[in-house]
Write a protein that binds this DNA or RNA. Structure first.
Length: 506
RNA sequence: CGGGGUGUAGCGCAGUCUGGCUAGCGUGCUAUCUUGGGGUGAUAGAGGUCGCCGGUUCAAGUCCGGUCACUCCGACCA
């Protein structure tokens, strides 16, 4: 590709709403363009190209793992969501609308219902199982607060896979296979990541794991053990239980729990005063959709005490129960090996769930077993935020000048920079190298614009192609430069050897 | 949903408090010249429903009322 022909509106100015490196560089580099704010983005040619490359890696690994790609309708009938009971549970994030005949539709935020519907119509026998189908398609979630560019847009590209099995054991086998497949995907993309235990949230199910790309700018706090493999989202983390006795100071936190159909309930949570309440755990403990703050009240009807207090506290309530509702703190002991747990920040780029029959039962996704008896399919579901991965890659791979794309995500393999296009020698060599490398199947960007050297280098650094050849003034001495974006190391190579030099590398 | 802020050229902003003539700056864009190893310099241009609706006034980007949108900080999410 010739730079002069490419639609890349690079800018010096930082967009005023961008604070994250990935957001700033994606906009400044002309990879994406904001659509009137509000978490919607257009992908310009370079952004689209990277998206496709990431897409290709994901597809390649899934196909190798035996998954089959499909593509489901983005617009989905609301009736399916009523069937599964999620129309209400999912709440305002669902973008709902009516067609001209007044039928209710939603834009799919995730596709369990649609996929189960597809499978229940086509799979009838145990002989057709197991099955793992996936798609890489747009999702729309009407987020409360979209921000950080591609990190949390309202419209985003997601890979969502769904597996169907005759037994829990077989589903768990597939779950493990997906975990391995995800590790391959993230590794190929050049990401440093950690697999952690997670809360299942609105998707439901049990035994879910998140794939966290480690970055200080990550929105999730994860608890990791430096001495073993243990890692968990703070929402699901557990530590070795500490012991308390009757002298322990106990504090009580008042919250309001929200349920379907506008039902609310005031709940009190009791825990040692040195320990923080973990809201997601607390929410799960009372099976609520959401917890909101509530002013303290003295009359305690429903009380959930932290399991650490069992047999220790003397609180009394009409309805009293124990559950793990405490937040793991830094320095707590690892339940597996006793190591001192640490906090770190991560970007949730993938999440895999063991669903069981939570969707197949209400939606009637049954198969006939060997005995001719109808059984609900056992399911797993597996997601990767593909467009979020672009942001994650930059968060982990950038410097103050711009992006540093990893090998499998880079928009081009090589950039050839002609320093001064008025120098016929430089132009001739640039054009020649360009042709030669294209013939070798290397994806090359040739910067033959009229701009000066400085502007071209700034753009090179901003765009972040892994390697560049600079044909400049020392061509007079028969030398060109080979630059690696990561670290900006320069290497002088003689003109006679440059073709061989590049051939070895690409 | 709670608390702040902002809507003026593609982008970044000034002007609004204290109403006044042709609405300005930077950047980007076009043209010509200049320069040629880290966003060169000069000249000339194109580009605006001042978020929207209504009101006050001889006169509104500026004052008043309403409305919409965006955005930042918190609680939720791939």
């Amino acid at each position: 590709m010739r730079f002069s022909r490419l639609l890349i509106p690079t800018t010096k100015e930082t967009p005023n709403d961008a604070t994250l490196a990935s957001h700033i560089f994606l906009i400044r580099g002309g990879f994406i363009q904001s659509v009137g704010g509000s978490g919607l983005y257009n992908f310009l040619p370079l952004g689209k190209k990277i998206l496709d490359k990431v897409h290709a890696v994901v597809k390649d690994e899934l196909d190798k793992a035996g998954c089959q790609e499909v593509s489901l309708s983005f617009v989905t009938p609301a009736s399916l969501w009523e069937e599964s009971g999620r129309l209400e549970k999912y709440g305002k994030e669902l973008l709902r609308f009516k067609d001209r005949k007044n039928n209710d539709f939603i834009l799919g935020p995730t596709h369990e219902e649609m996929m189960v519907n597809l499978v229940r119509q086509t799979v009838k026998s145990y002989k057709q199982l197991p099955l793992n189908v996936y798609q890489i398609n747009l999702k729309f979630r009407d987020e409360i607060r979209p921000r950080f560019g591609l990190m949390r847009g309202r419209e985003f590209l997601m890979k969502d896979a769904y597996s169907f099995h005759t037994s829990t054991e077989d589903m768990q086998r597939e779950f493990a296979l997906m975990e391995e497949t995800y590790k391959k995907i993230f590794t190929r993309l050049g990401l440093e990541f950690r697999v952690v235990d997670a809360d299942s949230g609105a998707i439901g199910g049990s035994g879910s794991k998140e794939f966290m790309v480690l970055a200080d700018s990550g929105e999730d706090t994860i608890v990791v053990c430096p001495d073993c493999e243990y890692g968990a989202n703070i929402e699901a983390a557990v530590a070795k239980p500490k012991t308390y006795d009757v002298s322990t100071q106990v504090k009580v936190v008042t919250m309001k729990a929200l349920y379907d159909e506008g039902v609310t309930k005031v709940v009190h949570f009791a825990l040692p005063s040195s320990v923080e309440l973990q809201e997601v755990k607390a929410c799960n403990a009372v099976n609520a959709n959401e917890l909101v703050e509530h002013e303290d009240t003295d009359t305690i009807i429903t009380l959930v005490a932290d399991s650490l207090l069992e047999g220790v506290d003397s609180l009394i309530a009409e309805e009293k129960s124990y559950a793990d509702i405490s937040a793991v703190q830094e320095g707590d002991s690892c339940a597996t090996c006793g190591g001192a747990l640490r906090y770190t920040k991560g970007i949730e780029a993938g999440h895999i769930f063991q669903l069981g029959t939570q969707y197949s039962e209400p939606l009637g996704a049954n198969f006939l077993d060997e005995n001719g008896k109808a059984q609900p399919m056992v399911m797993g579901t597996y997601g990767i935020g593909v467009s979020r991965l672009l942001a994650a890659i930059i968060e982990q791979n950038h410097d103050d000048k711009g992006c540093i794309w990893t090998k499998e995500s880079a928009p081009f393999d090589l950039q050839i920079i002609i320093s001064n296009i008025k120098d016929d020698g430089q132009v001739a060599l640039g054009e020649k190298l360009y042709e030669v490398m294209l013939d070798k199947g290397v994806d090359v960007l040739l910067d033959e614009r009229k701009d000066r050297f400085g502007a071209k280098m700034k753009d090179y650094e901003l765009l972040g192609v892994p390697h560049a050849v600079v044909i400049g003034k020392n061509l007079a001495d028969g030398v060109v430069e080979f630059i690696s974006r990561n670290g900006m190391e320069k290497e002088e190579v003689s003109v006679d050897e440059i073709v061989d030099f590049l051939s070895e590398r690409f």
